[in-house]
Design a protein around this nucleic acid. Structure first.
Length: 528
RNA sequence: GCGCCCGUAGCUCAACUGGACAGAGCAUCGGAUUUCUAAUCCGGUGGUUGCAGGUUCGACUCCUGCCGGGCGCACCA
């Protein structure tokens, strides 16, 4: 029943691949781990050209060193597969819905949305690279209470601009962009200063803000396949159906004039209101359309759904899942999956930046992209795991030196490209045919080839964990190996055999760096 | 009070999901090297992994209890 696990030891002297098999078996066999290991090693046989040496080490680990031929094979397959090297098919083309950003059209996107955009898009790409059929989806509310507040805020600014006394509503929107919207509305609707049509203002503001968000997302390099409107769930009665199903299943009850869902039956700490009492307006609470929306995802054939959200929404996780369970539709308990991320603080000159001119109270995605560029923003949002608070250091993102991880990684690619440029060699024409890896004698060459070989595994692990940070970690390791090799090993002007082999190494490195960067939505420049 | 997340070198973060001596970058100290981009390389200093227990051959990782920080706990979204 033992699972044989192979791992790459972090200590180089422990070989290329190791297993703890003997340690795991020792107890059941009532033998000393090292003796078990010796017995296993004695019984092993390998196909020719795979393993160079095997040894028992430490408490009972078995360490393998791979034959040089293996690295030659890596070089060959990278160059042959090119832009598709690192892809796998474990997803079998199964559909998966990745929902992210999902900002309501009440203002410009803030840094948290930016982190979601980077995360959601990278997770989508990781799933695509591992064989899933991904739909990127953006969900937004175009008709709720927040939208009403938005419309009232704009109306108040229109009135103020016309010299009439008006106050922003309680909890209204104060940003400078509201004033802009008011001006634009009046400019487009002569006579509106006197009496603006509230409904028309709402539609105008929603459309304008959605367009602005789309422009920002486009500048960020993120594209969605589906934009899903919350209002459509009401329009085609999906919200009503959801409530009716809960009631039919016997999970609802009336109390204090409101309709409740008995979520405590499913492990919640208290029951939840589904429909408010008459004196509170008699409307459904927000969580009903949330559940109806996920039923809809399920019915569209998404047996897997992933939501990237800020951790301030974590209380909805259980509620949505419980709401789905209470419907009895056979939807799995862990549906949908969530990737929750912690806060972002923007640092500049050693101090926290909190405000943006247009939005007023928060830093926008646009502010960041304008200041440091899309590549740096994307990379910085991905280089920490979602669970951790993220410090976005603007000064660091602007540095053109090794300290800046984006620069460091892109520079590695530019250097590889530089070899071909200076040598007048067509990179696309480089092959591994006739390359003898035995001429690659510098230790940094073996290290680089091993780092290249790990790419498919790094993609697979990052995809499985829904964690792009694993890939940025890998990318930095790879870039380090590439820089080191570049500085130790001359490519051009060496003997023909060495030059040919090293051109192949440079080409393979260029390919893997470009693939990894491309996956993360970051440019792979030819020069910096 | 309850729930979720976090706590690792002076700073920012890793550690392959329980493996071998906890590693990188920055900072700091000492050396080398004017190159297919000096936008470089090599080495040193720096740790009781917040604290206290437990589980096991083995714990940064899992469990329990504390301490500290963040975010949530509406008939708001």
């Amino acid at each position: 029943d033992v699972v044989v696990e192979l791992e790459t030891p972090r200590e180089k002297s422990h070989g290329d691949v190791a297993t703890n098999l003997a340690l795991v078996l020792a107890k059941a066999l009532k033998a000393k781990p090292r003796q078990v290991a010796e017995r296993i090693v004695a019984a092993l046989s390998f196909p020719p050209g795979l393993v160079a040496s095997v040894e028992v080490a430490g408490p009972g680990f078995i360490n393998f060193r791979l034959a040089a031929d293996q690295l030659a094979g890596t070089l060959q397959s990278i160059i042959a597969a090119g832009a598709s090297w690192g892809r796998s098919g474990v997803g079998n083309g199964a559909p998966v819905n990745v929902e992210f950003v999902s900002a309501n059209p009440t203002g410009p996107l803030h840094v948290g949305h930016g982190r979601q955009a980077a995360l959601g898009d990278a997770i989508s790409a990781l799933l695509e690279w591992t064989g899933w059929k991904v739909t990127r989806e953006f969900y937004y509310n175009d008709a709720g209470a927040q939208i009403a507040k938005l419309a009232e805020s704009v109306l108040a600014r229109i009135a103020q601009a016309a010299g009439r006394p008006a106050e922003l509503p309680e909890g209204g929107y104060h940003g400078e962009y509201i004033r802009e919207l008011a001006e634009r509305y009046v400019a487009a609707h002569p006579g509106a200063e006197a009496a603006a049509d509230a409904d028309a203002v709402r539609r105008f503001a929603v459309r304008a803000l959605r367009e602005e968000q789309d422009r920002d997302l486009q500048a960020f390099g993120v594209k969605f396949d589906v934009y899903f409107l919350e209002s459509s769930l009401y329009a085609d009665k999906r919200v009503d159906e959801t409530v009716a199903r809960w009631a039919a299943a016997g999970h609802t009850y009336e109390q204090d004039g409101a309709l409740w869902l008995r979520t405590t039956e499913f492990g919640d700490d208290k029951d939840r209101v589904v429909r408010r009492s008459a004196e509170k307006g008699g409307e459904y609470t927000y969580f009903v359309p949330d559940v109806a929306y996920h039923v809809n995802k399920w019915q569209r054939g998404f047996t897997r759904a992933i939501n990237a959200q800020g951790s301030d929404h974590h209380s909805t996780v259980n509620r949505v899942r419980i709401g789905l369970q209470a419907l009895g539709l056979g939807i799995p308990e862990g549906y949908p999956e969530y990737v929750l991320h912690q806060m972002v603080t923007v640092m500049k000159g050693g101090e926290e930046v909190r405000l943006s001119k247009r939005a007023g109270s928060y830093v926008t995605v646009r502010d960041l992209v304008d200041e440091v560029g899309r590549d740096a923003v994307r990379y910085f949002f991905l280089m920490r795991k979602a669970d951790s608070h993220l410090q976005f250091d603007i000064d660091l993102a602007l540095k053109r030196s090794e300290e800046n991880p984006v620069f460091y990684v892109q520079m590695a690619h530019a250097r590889m490209s530089g070899v071909f440029r200076v040598g007048g060699v067509d990179a696309a024409g480089v092959t591994a045919e006739g390359v003898d890896v035995a001429v690659l004698t510098d230790p940094s060459e073996a290290e680089l080839l091993k780092a290249l070989a790990r790419f498919p595994d790094a993609v697979a692990r990052a995809a499985e964990a829904l964690d792009p940070q694993r890939l940025t970690n890998y990318l930095e390791d790879l870039a380090r190996a590439a820089h080191l090799w570049y500085h130790r090993c001359r490519v051009l002007g060496e003997s023909p055999e060495v030059e040919r082999a090293r051109l192949a190494v440079a080409r393979a490195t260029q390919i893997v760096l470009a693939n990894a960067l491309g996956l993360l939505g970051i440019a792979a420049p030819e020069r910096m």
